[in-house]
Amino acid sequence: MSLEKKYPKEVKQLLAKYPPEHKRSAVMPLLYLAQREEGYITREAMQDIARILEITETEVASIVGFYTLYHDKKEGKYRMQVCTDLPCALRGADEFLDNLCANLGIKVGETTEDGLVTLESVMCLAACDRAPMFQTQGPRRHQVSRVHDRGPHHGIGRGVEEE
């Protein structure tokens, strides 16, 4: 089903944020909308968005490619995004990530066998005082979680589902 059919109300609300002659501005929120269910953006969704905004599919795809929070491939249902940037790394982020890899049995960039978690190492999340920590991204209305600063022994890898 097309995006407009599935989410008529949301599409309308998002378009209303921007001047009608600049509806292209809605491309980012529409991409999040498209990512809500599967956790990634399908070709069909890109076509829908191109149609709604009267731009080309290539233009939509080049937005998807530019920003790191949009994904065009199916990977783990949840993405654990661990910050390993300088301030966090000064407070043990790299070790935290190593432990996490060991606990989950995967390397950075890989997905657990059950398809639940993909592990990513990301840049500063604007919460450096709470290092080490991570956020999760997944299919749901609020796609990006708040940051979690639980240590590595709190069953991470299990509990994400409820977030």
Partner: peptide
Amino acid sequence: GEAVLGFDERGRNTQIISLSD
């Protein structure tokens, strides 16, 4: 007036794409 070429990704990974059909 046919924006059928674009850049994918960014930084050193920036590459030309065309998704038209």
